[in-house]
């Protein structure tokens, strides 16, 4: 139907507006809003417990917002016509059952979107898991689990990537791989939104920065704008989020 097709200007755009989430009588998101655009890596930064994961879970349709909207391609995630080819998500852990093999996990995801089985081997090779593909996920290291999650997100070669703390649990080589990889995705015109509480690791990776603290957005802009007069992003971050009780 014509109205369910995204407007050309909204393809690959993540739009979050007036998002409110309450849990146990506490407001954990107090009406936040920002945008992530194609061709750029947007860093969603904030201390632990600031509301990053809650925002991404609502964006992915996993949790329900009490108010506000979170859209991909101009529509709520559950309304996407082809979710696997539109947006890939990497949340914490592997996102796979421990008694399945890595390959079996990717196979069922591929089947859900009608992707060819050959694509499974492509993404396994891409993240360097080919040798571990026949091993059960329960036997994976933390880093291998993260690689499997990334492979899952890449199956449909989506125009949008959403990653929650993608550098957690990775060794230096893995961190370098993910950073380079995300820069390449953005260079090829795709949208990358990643959350992190590690500032130093991200300054070279992100183009745009959104800083969240205690459920509110405290700064948005390009890396240079947010860094401003501070020595670096890390200093700016601590100045913006000081007194957050860490």
């Amino acid at each position: 139907m014509w109205f369910s097709r995204p407007l050309a200007s909204l393809v690959g755009v993540i739009t979050i507006d007036g998002l409110v989430k309450r849990r146990g009588g506490k407001e954990i998101l107090a009406g936040i809003g920002f945008e992530a655009r194609p061709g750029r890596v947007t860093g969603f930064l904030g201390p632990n417990g600031a509301g990053k994961s809650s925002t991404l879970r609502i964006l992915l349709g996993l949790d329900r917002a009490d108010a506000g909207t979170a859209l991909v391609d101009g529509v709520p995630f559950p309304a996407l016509a082809d979710p696997v080819r539109t947006a890939g998500a990497v949340l914490d852990g592997s996102g796979a059952h421990r008694s399945r093999t890595g390959r079996a996990h990717l196979r069922w995801v591929a089947r859900s979107a009608g992707l060819p089985p050959a694509r499974v081997d492509e993404v396994l090779a891409l993240v360097g898991l080919t040798d571990a593909a026949a091993k059960r996920v329960g036997g994976y290291s933390l880093g291998m689990g993260r690689r499997l999650a990334l492979a899952t997100a890449l199956l449909g070669d989506p125009s949008v990537l959403i990653l929650d703390e993608p550098l957690n649990g990775l060794d230096p080589e893995g961190i370098r791989f993910v950073r380079t990889f995300l820069r390449e995705r953005a260079r090829s015109g795709r949208t990358v939104l990643l959350s992190s509480h590690l500032m130093g690791e991200l300054a070279e990776t992100v183009d745009d920065v959104v800083v969240i603290d205690r459920g509110r957005i405290v700064a948005t802009g390009t890396l240079a704008e947010v860094t401003g007069a501070h020595r670096n992003l890390e200093d700016a971050f601590f100045a913006l989020t000081s007194g957050s009780g860490r």
Binding site: P78, P83, G93, H97
Partner: peptide
């Protein structure tokens, strides 16, 4: 219930979001 092992439910609901 096996969906709730290893956070697989998050994968399931992001690749098949029409619950």
């Amino acid at each position: 219930c096996s969906e709730y092992t290893g956070g697989q439910i998050r994968t399931t609901l992001t690749v098949m979001p029409r619950r």
